Simulated assay, not measured.
Amino acid sequence: MADHTIGTVADIPQGTRKIVVLEGIKIGVFNITGKFYAVKNTCPHQGAPLCEGSITGTILPSPPGEYVWGRDNEILRCPWHGWEFDITNGKSHYNPHQCFVKTYEVSIEEEEIDTVTVDTYPVNVEHGKVIVTV
């Protein structure tokens, strides 16, 4: 496994995604409330471009007759058949123990700031003359 720089944090604003190809594999990188996740861009059902699907939430367990919405922006819905996957771990919403998509580790590294240096030379003033020593 190799590390790949795909851009800066600013390139993937909160609530968006960036789809990249790394070592021949299409991967969607998602920014969910400032935390980054990477998911293989292939739905296990029929190979759809999963990461092009809608990002949504889901109904949480709740009492009968009550609908509680949650996990906003953490569920990825396949654009072909609506299969839903948890972006944070790749598990399917309907069968998390047997159906999942490959996920990848994402890390944020501090951006190196290029140091620009300027050569300076001593300057003296002698008897009204400016003298630079090189």
Rank of each mutant, 00 (worst) to 15 (best):
M1T: 08
D3F: 07
H4P: 00
T5F: 07
T5S: 12
T8N: 13
V9T: 07
A10D: 13
D11A: 09
P13F: 08
Q14N: 14
K18A: 12
K18F: 01
K18H: 06
L22P: 02
L22M: 11
E23A: 13
E23S: 15
I25P: 01
I25D: 12
K26G: 07
I27K: 01
I27R: 03
V29K: 08
N31T: 09
T33M: 13
T33N: 14
T33Q: 14
T33Y: 10
G34M: 05
Y37N: 00
K40E: 15
N41M: 04
N41P: 02
P44H: 04
P44K: 04
G47F: 08
P49T: 04
P49D: 06
C51I: 03
G53Y: 05
S54W: 10
I55D: 00
I55S: 04
L60G: 02
L60E: 00
P61S: 00
G65K: 11
G65R: 08
Y67A: 11
R71G: 02
D72W: 13
N73M: 09
E74Y: 09
E74A: 03
I75K: 04
I75E: 05
I75M: 09
R77F: 01
R77W: 00
G82A: 03
G82D: 01
E84H: 04
E84A: 15
T88K: 15
G90W: 01
K91E: 12
S92Q: 11
H93I: 04
N95E: 14
H97E: 14
Q98Y: 07
Q98A: 10
C99K: 10
K102H: 04
T103W: 03
T103I: 05
S107L: 09
S107G: 06
S107F: 12
I108R: 14
E109S: 12
E109Q: 14
E111C: 08
E112Y: 01
D114P: 03
T115Q: 08
T115H: 06
T115R: 04
T120K: 07
T120P: 02
Y121R: 11
Y121Q: 12
Y121E: 08
V125K: 02
E126T: 10
K129Q: 15
K129V: 14
V130G: 03
V130L: 11
V130K: 11
I131Q: 01
V132T: 11
T133Q: 10
